[in-house]
Write a protein that binds this DNA or RNA. Structure first.
Length: 440
RNA sequence: CGGGGCGUAGCGCAGCCCGGUAGCGCAUCUGCUUUGGGAGCAGAGGGUCGCAGGUUCGAAUCCUGCCGCCCCGACCA
């Protein structure tokens, strides 16, 4: 992408009402634009990151056996009356009326709808287990949205729903998502710790929140710091192998870790003092097992091997990709701007022409640009006629993992400079060498 | 939902107390000079001062109501 043809509305100064660093940087880097309280447009750069986050989520969901679909944002009130949640959910649910005065709502979550879809088609245990998910916009009319897309009213959510014949099967489905989540967050460069959590309005009795540690986090969390050294399950992990999977989950739940709602001070005190970690965290995922809470009232039943008809055991599993974008920035930035982990960076390489209009630098940049894009690498080529300093500042702000600088001085020696955004190391190499390095 | 604060150009702000036809920096456009860490000079464009009433000869400024947004707390996938 040529910057001169792109839409990247950089702000030199942060808007006053942006308090936390991720919100400021997202606004300054031209990633988002606020349209109303807690409602944001994702501009091209932000959209690229959001798409990459979703893609990793999707790959790991698929790997764990979940199947993608897409449900609507608008739901009928009748569906929610069946589960009894229409009245329970309160003002957080945005209720709307269509032209025929039918009661509708903008979905805050999809347990009811997926249960309705399931019960219409699945009648036999032979079709189980089943795990269906989608990535769709949700709306929760928060009393107080804040911190940009970190706590917004409209937000993107990946929500998966598992269906099993019995509690034991459901436990395995839960474990699959548990492991998928560990992998998902690790791939984004995050250390996420599963913590025993409250189930809130979703219900149920088995639940973990996945928390990443960040000083700006909203939740107060307590855990044993050994978690930070734990290995994340490898790509080849067998999701169908029950005992192996259970072992992974057991290990990741063997040590104390809880949010403040579930905090047990006495248990925490038993951890040796130097291993106690009391910090703030950001919730980036939440998984629940809630049994027959919805299947029973909504009559989502299947015939078992013995011919008995029983309600299915369900779980639901959420990740907020829009919040994750903010969370990743909270976890990875410096005083100059964002430092994207390579896996979710909007572009891998920022190519800077320090003297636009100079025949030699123009030609070298064009060659690098076409060679890199030809290899399938995402390159943002700053071909504007801004001055060098402005280009450096912009590239540091938007945080692309690699910067390639083409200026007349080094180019006279046949060299260009490559810089790693995260460590800041710079190196002069030939254009060919730069292409080789960046293709790796 | 309680408490506090703020709405003036795309962004950051001044002007408001003490009423007199709206200003600064950045950004944008034009020209010239510059060109390896947010350039300089000269010129230009851009604002129903959140909205609606009221007071006044005259309102960004004073009064009333409304709307929007932010922060703290409570709440929260």
């Amino acid at each position: 992408m040529r910057l001169s043809r792109y839409f990247l509305p950089i702000l030199r100064e942060a808007p006053r009402d942006a308090e936390i660093v991720s919100h400021r940087l997202m606004l300054r880097a031209g990633m988002i634009r606020q349209e109303a309280a807690g409602i944001y447009a994702f501009l091209p750069l932000g959209h690229r990151v959001l798409t990459k986050v979703c893609q990793i989520v999707r790959e790991e969901q698929n790997r764990a056996g979940a199947i993608e679909m897409l449900m609507p944002t608008i739901q009928s009130a009748d569906l929610w009356r069946e589960s009894g949640r229409y009245d329970d959910y309160g003002k957080e649910m945005l209720r709307i009326e269509d032209r025929h005065e039918r009661e509708m709502l903008f979905g805050p979550t999809n347990e009811e709808m997926i249960t309705e879809i399931f019960r219409a088609s699945v009648k036999s245990y032979k079709q189980l287990p089943l795990n269906l998910y989608h990535i769709q916009w949700k709306f929760r009319d928060e009393v107080r949205p804040r911190f940009g897309v970190y706590r917004s009213r409209e937000f993107l959510m990946k929500d998966a729903y598992s269906f099993d014949l019995d509690a034991e099967g459901a436990r395995h489905s839960y474990n699959k998502m548990f492991v998928a989540y560990l992998r998902t967050f690790a791939r984004m460069g995050l250390k996420a710790i599963p913590m025993v959590a409250d189930t809130g309005p979703i219900g149920g009795n088995l639940s973990h929140e996945f928390i990443i540690l960040a000083s700006t986090g909203e939740s107060e969390v307590f855990c044993q710091n050994d978690f930070l050294e734990f290995d994340v399950p490898a790509e080849g992990v067998d999701f169908d192998e029950k005992t192996g999977l259970q072992k992974i989950v057991d290990r990741w739940t063997s040590l104390y870790a809880a949010t403040s709602e579930k905090h047990d001070a006495a248990a925490f005190e038993k951890i040796p003092e130097p291993k106690r970690l009391s910090a703030r965290g950001i919730e980036v995922g939440h998984i629940f097992y809630f049994g027959t809470k919805y299947s029973e009232p909504m009559k989502a039943t299947v015939s078992g091997p013995n011919g008995n008809v029983s309600p299915v055991h369900m779980g639901s599993y959420g990740i907020g990709p829009s919040r994750l974008v903010a969370a990743i920035i909270e976890a990875s930035h410096d005083d100059k701007g964002i430092v994207w982990p390579e896996a979710i960076a909007p572009f891998k390489v920022g190519l800077m022409n320090l003297k636009q209009g100079d025949a030699a630098t123009d030609a070298a940049c064009e060659q690098l640009y076409s060679a890199l894009t030809g290899k399938g690498i995402d390159v943002l080529y700053d071909d504007t006629d801004e001055r060098a300093g402005a280009k450096f500042a912009t590239m540091d702000l938007i945080g692309l993992p690699w910067q390639v600088t083409v200026g007349p001085k080094a180019l006279a020696e046949g060299k260009v400079e490559i810089k790693r955004r995260s460590g800041g190391e710079r190196e002069l190499v030939t254009p060919e060498e730069a292409i080789n390095r960046l293709s790796g």
